[in-house]
Structure formats: C-alpha cells, structure tokens
Computed example of a mutant assay.
Amino acid sequence: MPHQGEILQEAIKNSGISITRIVDGLGITRPTIYRKFKEETLDYGFVKKVGDIIGHDFSSDFTVVQQVSLPFVTQRADVTALPIVTNRDASVSQPEPDTAKQLLALQTKYISLLEAYNELLLKVYGPR
C-alpha cells in the first residue's frame, strides 16, 4: 500500500501540472516537495494546498487508517459516549460504511479534544 507521500506524488503526476508551478504556488523549493514525496504521513494543510493547486480532492485517496495516523492527531482510549440530544427522523439515507467509519473516527477525535479542552479549562479557571 503506498504511503501518503507516494499518493501525493502520483496525483501530481496524473494532474499534468509541472512541479515548478506547484512549488511556486506553495512557496517552497523543489527539494522540499521531493522530500515530502518520501514521507509516510503528511500535514493536512500541505495536502489541501497541493489539492487546491492541482484541482484534486485527496479525501478519498487516504484510507481511514492513514488519516488516523496523521502526525497532528492523537487518540485517547478513555473516550465516553455522549447521550443523544435530539432524535431525528431517519428519512436521510444511510452513509456508505467507509464514510460512516470515517465519521465515527472524526467524532471520537472531536470528543477527545473537547474533553482535553474541558480539563484544561478546569485546571486554569477551576470549577464554577
């Protein structure tokens, strides 16, 4: 399975846009982008900028496992489920299983960040 740098390199190659144009748009040097091609995980902002330049959406190129392993994402094992606030009518079609897994992974990360933020607020300001 190709890593994120290889996926980025392949998408750039398939776009037909020159590396010179891409590095100029990113404000980096050619050696820098070639180093990025060798990295297993890439920063989301960098990938998004490249995608904007070449007109490519990378969200479907990276698997859920690869997205979870991004360097700026941390997992916490003690995540607890929140109660459902409102019940909505299930008239909306069910998402595809991969999309559902991605949403669940994002929800878990979001809850983890909220809990960490609340703990920090309690340490800084104390209980109300």
Score class of each variant (00 low, 15 high):
residue 2 P to N: 15
residue 3 H to V: 05
residue 4 Q to H: 09
residue 5 G to R: 03
residue 6 E to Y: 04
residue 6 E to T: 04
residue 6 E to L: 15
residue 6 E to I: 09
residue 7 I to Y: 00
residue 7 I to F: 00
residue 8 L to E: 02
residue 10 E to V: 01
residue 10 E to C: 01
residue 10 E to F: 13
residue 11 A to R: 00
residue 11 A to Y: 00
residue 11 A to G: 00
residue 11 A to S: 01
residue 12 I to T: 12
residue 12 I to F: 12
residue 12 I to L: 13
residue 13 K to Q: 13
residue 14 N to T: 04
residue 14 N to S: 12
residue 14 N to A: 10
residue 15 S to Y: 05
residue 15 S to E: 11
residue 16 G to I: 01
residue 17 I to N: 05
residue 19 I to N: 12
residue 19 I to V: 11
residue 20 T to D: 15
residue 21 R to Y: 14
residue 21 R to C: 09
residue 21 R to F: 05
residue 22 I to R: 13
residue 22 I to L: 07
residue 23 V to I: 08
residue 23 V to C: 07
residue 24 D to S: 12
residue 25 G to P: 07
residue 27 G to D: 05
residue 28 I to F: 15
residue 28 I to P: 10
residue 28 I to S: 04
residue 28 I to D: 02
residue 28 I to Q: 11
residue 32 T to R: 08
residue 33 I to Q: 08
residue 35 R to E: 10
residue 35 R to N: 08
residue 37 F to G: 09
residue 39 E to I: 04
residue 39 E to K: 15
residue 40 E to Q: 07
residue 40 E to N: 03
residue 41 T to S: 12
residue 42 L to Q: 04
residue 42 L to F: 01
residue 43 D to I: 04
residue 43 D to Y: 15
residue 44 Y to N: 02
residue 46 F to L: 10
residue 46 F to A: 04
residue 48 K to H: 05
residue 49 K to F: 01
residue 49 K to P: 02
residue 50 V to H: 00
residue 51 G to Q: 04
residue 51 G to R: 04
residue 52 D to P: 01
residue 53 I to Y: 00
residue 53 I to W: 00
residue 54 I to K: 01
residue 54 I to Q: 01
residue 54 I to F: 05
residue 55 G to I: 01
residue 55 G to F: 01
residue 55 G to C: 13
residue 55 G to H: 05
residue 57 D to F: 00
residue 57 D to C: 00
residue 60 S to E: 04
residue 60 S to N: 10
residue 61 D to T: 15
residue 63 T to I: 05
residue 64 V to Q: 14
residue 65 V to N: 03
residue 66 Q to P: 12
residue 67 Q to W: 09
residue 68 V to S: 06
residue 69 S to M: 07
residue 69 S to C: 05
residue 70 L to W: 13
residue 72 F to Y: 03
residue 72 F to M: 14
residue 72 F to N: 14
residue 73 V to I: 12
residue 74 T to K: 13
residue 74 T to F: 06
residue 75 Q to P: 06
residue 75 Q to L: 10
residue 75 Q to G: 07
residue 77 A to M: 10
residue 78 D to N: 15
residue 78 D to R: 10
residue 79 V to I: 02
residue 80 T to W: 08
residue 81 A to V: 02
residue 81 A to Q: 03
residue 82 L to A: 06
residue 83 P to M: 09
residue 83 P to C: 06
residue 85 V to M: 05
residue 85 V to P: 00
residue 89 D to P: 10
residue 89 D to Y: 15
residue 90 A to C: 11
residue 90 A to P: 05
residue 91 S to Q: 12
residue 93 S to G: 08
residue 93 S to L: 10
residue 94 Q to I: 11
residue 95 P to R: 06
residue 96 E to G: 11
residue 96 E to Y: 15
residue 100 A to K: 14
residue 100 A to W: 03
residue 100 A to I: 14
residue 101 K to Q: 10
residue 103 L to F: 14
residue 104 L to K: 03
residue 105 A to P: 11
residue 107 Q to P: 01
residue 108 T to C: 09
residue 109 K to T: 12
residue 109 K to E: 15
residue 110 Y to C: 13
residue 110 Y to K: 08
residue 111 I to P: 00
residue 111 I to S: 02
residue 111 I to H: 02
residue 112 S to Y: 07
residue 114 L to N: 13
residue 115 E to N: 04
residue 116 A to V: 14
residue 118 N to T: 07
residue 119 E to V: 03
residue 120 L to E: 14
residue 120 L to Q: 08
residue 120 L to P: 05
residue 121 L to A: 09
residue 123 K to T: 14
residue 126 G to Y: 06
residue 126 G to I: 09
residue 126 G to P: 15
residue 127 P to Q: 14
residue 128 R to D: 11
